[in-house]
Design a binder for these strands. Structure first.
Length: 424
DNA sequence: TCTGGGGTCCTAGGACCC
DNA sequence: TCTGGGGTCCTAGGACCC
């Protein structure tokens, strides 16, 4: 048996955890650059505010109902997530942290327990330790646990817990689940399935396996098997090594000059390098992209992108920055109004597997020597101790392009200076 | 005026090998 | 009428997730 524990309206719940007054108001959280609504409390959902709606489109509604609106505060959400996961890890022998707000737990050793009682204990413990409300779904496969969790979330009378164990319970749940609500079935595939009169999870479980295999490939075949109670997806205890790392942002205002783009791209390259070092990896390739506003109706659109190999696999900020600058110079077009840019590093190899890769032309390559390695270690150590950005490359600068973030809440769990007094 | 960011996996097809 | 068999590696594109 697998449990799926999923935090309710996670970002909105994080905002409420340190600001109890918000429990009396609907809450929404915006995406980066204060663009779209990406999290909603139950009250906000009840007002009809849809996931992903641009904030400006529902501004009157937000105002009318005195909705509390926040910029996204990833320092807060990341820290709250690790608190939730730490608590969950004490409640089951094995846990897979699936996303910032979800975890799968291995319940196979709980055969002598009443699973529903245990799930209620999990909910209560997480709530008490972190202030975050969660729902728990338990079933014989991960896909069914997802369905169980969804039922627990949507139907108040479950009180946050749904266990699917018997054939009757599972069949009933499958019949009540629309095919587009199955984990792994997105827009395209649900269109295909609906055209074939496969409307519910029960229909998909009963559909001809050969048809599913042909049109939904191996991934769909696995989903079907999981719906039938055959477990194909094990708990993954160690996170697989990353294959790509991306840092990109939309700009707070329009940017036209190469100098401004250079500052943005340098900042993203620097962040990518930090992430590569954190992953204990070396990057082999680098992509830079710059883009105009795709919603601009004047039609003057441009999406410039190019990938280049690094002189050798590297985690050095300066080496990565140099290549990023060269690519940017090659894709920059004068006279365009840019709205977004990003840096992607790929071809990541674990650093401990790369020590034997010697270069044919070592003297031509900056960033390979001991001095640069120590410089990066020193930078990371200083930033670890004194806060992100305490030291950075001189080329990194966010003045001209920094995203809008006008409604940021305090970092109540990661910055002493941000702890506020709340009178309850 | 104002529209997010960061990932993975699978398949098909081309280029190449013996 | 007729064109082998078996394989790897790489990339682009399409699907999905949170």
């Amino acid at each position: 048996m697998f449990a799926l524990v999923d935090c309710n309206n996670f970002y909105a719940s994080c905002e409420r955890a340190f600001n109890p007054v918000l429990r009396l108001r609907p809450v929404v959280v915006l995406s980066n650059n204060d663009g779209c609504i990406i999290a909603r409390s139950e009250e906000a959902k009840a007002l009809g505010i849809q996931m992903g709606t641009p904030e400006f489109k529902c501004r009157p509604l937000l105002k009318q109902h005195d909705v509390a609106v926040f910029s996204s505060n990833y320092a807060l959400y990341g820290d709250m997530s690790s608190r939730v996961m730490t608590t969950l890890a004490t409640l089951a022998p094995e846990i897979e942290v699936y996303s910032i707000d979800e975890a799968f737990l291995d319940m196979s050793s709980f055969t002598r327990f009443n699973l529903a009682d245990y799930a209620r204990l999990m909910r209560k413990t997480v709530r008490q330790n972190t202030g975050i409300p969660v729902c728990v779904g338990i079933a014989p496969t991960k896909t069914l646990a997802k369905i169980a969790n969804r039922l627990a979330k949507k139907n108040p009378h479950y009180q946050g817990v749904c266990v699917l164990k018997s054939h009757a319970e599972i069949n009933d749940a499958l019949e009540r689940t629309k095919v587009e609500d199955i984990w792994g079935i997105g827009r395209q595939w649900s269109k295909l399935l609906l055209a074939k009169r496969i409307d519910t999870a029960a229909d998909m479980a009963a559909a001809p396996a050969s048809w599913i295999r042909k049109h939904l490939h191996i991934v769909g075949a696995r989903i079907q098997a999981e719906l039938q109670g055959k477990s194909c997806l094990p708990i993954e205890l160690v996170r697989p090594a990353k294959q790509t790392i991306c840092t990109s942002r939309s700009f707070g205002r329009s940017v036209s000059t190469l100098a401004e783009l250079q500052q943005a791209v340098a900042t993203f390259a620097g962040k990518c390098a930090v992430k590569v070092r954190k992953e204990n990896a070396l990057a082999s390739m680098l992509t830079v992209f710059i883009a105009t506003n795709p919603f601009d109706e004047s039609g003057n659109h441009y999406w410039g992108t190019r990938t280049a190999a690094l002189p050798h696999p590297s985690q050095d900020s300066i080496a990565i920055l140099r290549v990023a600058e060269a690519i940017l110079a090659g894709i920059f077009r004068d006279g365009m109004v840019y709205k977004k840019a990003g840096v992607i590093v790929s071809g990541l190899v674990p650093e401990d597997q790369c020590s034997t890769t010697l270069s044919l032309f070592p003297e031509e390559e900056p960033g390979t020597n001991m001095r640069d390695e120590k410089l990066m270690q020193a930078m990371d150590a200083i930033n670890q101790r004194y806060g992100r950005g305490a030291v950075h490359l001189a080329a990194e600068n966010s003045e001209s392009w920094k995203p809008n973030q006008e409604r940021l809440s305090p970092c109540s769990t990661t910055r002493w200076d941000d702890i506020i007094e709340v009178n309850v």
